[in-house]
Design a protein around this nucleic acid. Structure first.
Length: 787
DNA sequence: TGCCCTCGGGG
DNA sequence: GTGTACGAGGGCA
């Protein structure tokens, strides 16, 4: 018997003579490994099944055993039957068959996960067994395992294959497939050219030969992978095995899976991680690598290919490499390995799975240990959304020296403090939630599973933080920091699944009472602060924004620290997070901009969209400039700028270039009502003008009549003279609408920006109602800038 | 205000 | 594979 230490990347099962669990991973010696394990059986529970059911089950040839069990369900311990069956793929049938007779439990847990839960395996394991030789696997090692042990987590260097293809727009044929393969520190390039069939075969062989843990590229899920499959189908090719056992790719909605490997689209991950304003490979490369794509025009790929094939191949290799480096730079694999460690799951499940998967992994293990029932995930009707956090209204205006206080891990803290759990939910519980009739048992009567798990995670996080502090080696420090961040993510995810829609362990009452407790908490802090004379200007869920009466950083700092200290109590720590000076809002919740001046200087924009690509230049540029002036306390300048911008557009004193709107145009028939689509209209006119158009191209236009339906547009081609007249009125109105959201605060609404004059006197009344907010604000904003 | 539709990335 | 998976903005009623 030999042992290997493995970072688990994926878990699955296969049907041979029997069911075999497969773990795929990489060892601490850098070898890829496939681990096989026989003899694990699927099972589920039935709650108090009617008499006769047990006998019926025992007689079923697919049933291995029926045993008695007792599980805590719906407030008390109940007699159950544990039904073990032969094959995991039969579980759904059993589930359906018995659901009408009694409650079925734990019959929707992926078999691989069930295996990991039951052996309580984590993200890294020591596998003991013997090496075997099974040809279908592409891994360095194949092992028949007899034993598993948990070990200290480690993060092996993963082998990543990034690829990109170029295809003819005219004929749809693949021109080249290029790869950048990273193994440890070094990166190798491979490029395939020639006839399409052999390129595809060559690509599959390359995957088989190099056996990457991760396959990446830019938008491969949505483009390159389906494209290769489409072309392979065209040639009637089969056996497109990219899996580590030679099996084919699986289509999971928008995404793709290859057994034993992780398909991690660099675009998708960069999008999640960075939320860039522009998501093109070029823009993201510039953003994270400070580097650009090669100079090839993809819209003219056929011409480029005809002119210089080697140049196109270089370009393609470069794209593959950029995607690879982006994935490495944003370190998603590392971060997710940490999350896999704390949630005890294979990397693939963490990277590509839902957050409920993470919580399941932690909660189901704990439930099993405590003999607590694991219900099925019910088919959620996404009816009523539970009420969210408390958001304090913000009056429009400009505020100086704003301090921001934050409750530390508010939701987890509340769950622990109030013993909130599906196991403690009880009408006669002593802990009364603000929600009518939703009460929880106190800890002494029954400690909730959820609070128990969260308390352990919190403790674990504190310990990890302590280790981080104690670590001398920077690499060690980073390692512990990653882990403690991952625990934080996991804890916040716990609240997420309980609060959002339906989750197997909860009902809306629990989520609703968590937020209800939270609202009560935040509101009470706000009113206490107000009663002692501190001016609270805003608050959202777990944060409170107060205004320092002084006009220095030191005064704001002192007040913030004092409040944090005074209002922190056991289980609800209030932290002083930052100082913003100044802060501006036009009076809508969740929308503000400001200059953060402590602890670090930065600009903060929340809710305002200054970065849309389908807005015309003037629209986004002027909004940004208006914000800059406002934060410089130059409100008059901001208003003047907004007014002048709108006026200039209305008078036609702008170049058509600044009015161009760009969007992608897909195949016309993919639109419900193509002729109503400005993109389609533009594309058709482009073709009439003799320009080439291919579905998927970005088209640019200028609106020539915004009043008609559908809107009338004219294509804009850079370099070609634009000889139509833009609908300046339409553009002025759109700019005014964007800018007025902000200038309204200072007394200028859409109409007034359009006409350039204020129509109402400052103190006019509106139908007997109190003065319009904007007028109050005008005064207030002046006052705010005083000391 | 809330629903419905579309887009984004790729060539 | 005991799993069906985005998220945000704009248009329109």
């Amino acid at each position: 018997m030999v042992s290997w230490n493995v970072r688990v990347l994926a878990v699955s099962y296969t049907k041979e003579d029997d069911v075999i669990i497969e773990l795929f991973g990489r060892t601490d010696k850098g070898k890829s490994i496939a681990v096989r394990y026989r003899g694990f059986r699927p099972y589920f529970y039935l709650v108090a099944p009617p008499s006769g059911i047990a006998a019926e089950l025992k007689a079923n040839a697919n049933v291995v055993s029926v045993e008695d069990a007792e599980l805590f369900h719906d407030g008390k311990d109940r007699p159950c039957k544990k039904v073990t069956i032969k094959y995991p793929w039969l579980v759904p049938d059993f589930r359906k068959a018995y659901a009408s007779h009694c409650r079925v439990l734990a019959a929707d847990i992926p078999f691989g996960h069930r295996f990991m839960y039951d052996l309580d395996l984590g993200g890294c394991v020591r596998v003991t067994g013997k090496k075997v030789d099974i040809e279908k696997y592409t891994t360095d090692l194949v092992v028949e395992a007899s034993e598993f042990q948990n070990i200290e987590p480690f993060k092996p260097e993963l082998k990543i294959l990034s690829f990109d293809l170029e295809n003819s727009i005219k004929t749809d044929e693949i021109l080249t497939i290029c790869c950048a393969i990273s193994n440890g520190g070094e990166t190798k390039h491979e490029s395939l050219v020639g006839d399409e069939k052999s390129m595809i075969t060559g690509f599959l062989e390359l995957i088989k030969r190099t056996d990457p843990d991760v396959i990446t590229g830019y938008n491969i899920d949505g483009y390159d992978i389906p494209f290769i499959l489409k072309r392979a189908a065209h040639h009637r090719m089969n056996e497109l095995g990219m899996g580590r056992d030679g099996t084919e790719l699986r289509d999971v909605g928008k995404f793709w899976r290859a057994k034993g490997r992780i398909i991690a689209d660099a675009w998708w991950n960069a999008k999640k991680e960075l939320r860039p304003k522009q998501e093109t490979l070029n823009a993201v490369s510039k953003l994270v690598l400070g580097e650009q794509k090669d100079d090839v025009n993809p819209a003219q790929i056929d011409q480029e290919w005809a002119a210089d094939k080697e140049k196109v191949v270089r370009y393609c290799v470069k794209d593959a490499e950029l995607a690879l480096r982006i994935l490495q730079k944003i370190a998603v694999l590392e971060k997710n390995m940490d999350l896999a460690t704390v949630s005890k799951l294979p990397l693939d499940d963490v990277l590509n799975g839902r957050t409920s998967t993470l919580i399941d992994s932690v909660l189901i293990r704990e439930a099993d240990r405590n003999k607590i029932a694991v219900p099925l995930t019910s088919n959620f009707d996404r009816e009523e959304q539970i009420e969210g956090g408390y958001v304090h209204t913000i009056d429009p205006g400009l505020y100086d020296w704003v301090g921001v206080l934050d409750f530390k891990s508010m939701y987890p803290s509340l769950i622990i403090a109030k013993n909130i759990c599906f196991t403690t939910l009880s009408r006669d519980g002593k802990i009364k939630s603000p929600e009518e009739g939703v009460n929880y048992l106190d800890k002494e009567t029954r400690l909730g599973l959820l609070p128990q798990v969260l308390e352990r995670l919190m403790k674990q996080r504190d310990e990890t933080k302590a280790k981080m502090k104690a670590a001398k080696d920077p690499a060690q420090k980073r390692y512990y920091n990653g882990l403690q961040e991952a625990i934080k993510v996991l804890m916040n995810a716990v609240y997420g699944v309980f609060a959002s829609s339906f989750y197997r362990f909860t009902n809306p009452k629990i989520g609703a009472s968590i937020t209800a407790f939270a609202r009560e908490n935040t509101k009470s802090i706000i009113s206490q602060l107000e009663s002692e004379g501190v001016r609270v200007i805003y608050g959202d869920t777990d944060s409170v924004f107060f205004q320092s009466p002084g006009n220095t950083l030191d005064e704001a700092l002192e007040l913030g620290k004092a409040i944090a200290k005074r209002y922190s109590k056991e289980g609800a720590t209030l932290e002083f997070e930052k100082i913003i000076n100044p802060l501006f809002s036009h009076g809508a919740k969740k929308r503000y901009v400001g200059n953060v001046v402590w602890p670090e200087e930065s600009m903060i924009v929340r809710g305002y969209e200054t970065r849309r690509t389908d807005a015309f230049n003037i629209q986004s540029d002027s909004l940004t400039k208006v914000f800059e002036r406002i934060l410089d306390h130059d409100t008059d300048g901001a208003i003047a700028l907004a007014r002048e911008t709108v006026q200039a557009i209305a008078k036609g004193e702008v170049s058509p270039e600044d009015l161009v709107i760009s969007k992608t145009c897909k195949n016309f028939n993919t639109y419900k009502d193509p002729d109503n689509q400005a993109t389609v209209q533009t594309a058709k006119k482009l073709m009439e003008l003799g320009y080439e158009f291919t579905p998927g191209m970005k088209v640019s236009w200028v609106v020539t009549s915004g009043r008609r339906t559908p809107i009338e547009v004219e294509p804009f081609v850079s370099g070609r003279k634009f000889d139509k007249t833009p609908d300046y009125e339409y553009y002025a109105r759109r700019a005014a609408m964007t800018l007025a959201r902000v200038t309204d605060t200072f007394g200028w609404d859409v109409q007034e920006l359009l006409t350039g004059t204020q129509q109402k006197s400052l103190f006019s009344y509106d139908g007997g109602k109190p003065p319009r907010p904007k007028e109050r604000k005008r005064q207030r904003s002046r006052k705010q800038t005083r000391s």
